[in-house]
Amino acid sequence: MNILTCLKRVPETGAKIVLTDDNQEIDTTNLGFTMSPHEECAIEEAVQIVEGQGGTATVLTLGSEEATEQVRTGIAMQADEGVLLETDGSEWGPRNIAGAIADFVRQRMERGDGFDLLLFGNESADTGNYQVGVRVANELDLPCITSIKDLEVTDDGVVARREIPRGSEVYELDLPAVVAVKEGLNEPRYASMRARMQARRQEVKRVTPERRHERGLEKLSLQSPEDDDGETDILGDSPDAVPAIMDVLETDLEVL
């Protein structure tokens, strides 16, 4: 089975997000980069399926040269092949990203080197657009399901489960298919130093994608949400605070 996993390079934010002075970007001067958490699980799933039944696991991203760092993380997690749809690093928007990925998949299919399964993170950690996987599926006319936390390959295709409050919904899809997954799908492996070193030497294929659309959703500016937290009532600095906690639980909040 040949699996394509699409990922996105995003800044590794800590306790507070700081913006650049023009409020157009996150100030990444002091930040490292990672991939969205859902996508780590997508790569792990792809690698596990390929380890179980053969085939290849390909990881792909769209972005600048720097994004090869995240592609190589995927390779260090034992993906076989890395692809960069190389851009100048500006935000492309979901329609253009999906178009570029679909173009790439189509070219591979025409070469007889297509994919049986396309995995996406359900939404990217940064822009959170919730639509790239669905758009790729529509472009390629493939069945698609999103928000998946359990995936099983069967003789007929895949069985995918979506978590609901007291259980899960079960979906069945024929292959080839598009599945957008969420963290919790599996426990992604931690790539060893040796694997990381090896991944550094592996070639990442470059493709220049075509940008087809004008931006339909255009970013004007970014802002931090208003901090409406107010004061924190410090109840104490030792177990002696317990009576004060009890008072809050009983009187203020009436939860006891």
Binding site: T13, I17, L19, I26, A125, D126, T127, G128, G216, L217, E218, K219, L220, S221, L222, Q223, S224, P225
Partner: peptide
């Protein structure tokens, strides 16, 4: 439409223009 939407799960807000 000029709109405000969530990025980063709501940690950051984006002011954006939506056409179509």
């Amino acid at each position: 439409y000029e709109l405000t939407r969530q990025r980063w799960g709501g940690t950051l807000l984006e002011n954006a223009r939506l056409t179509g």
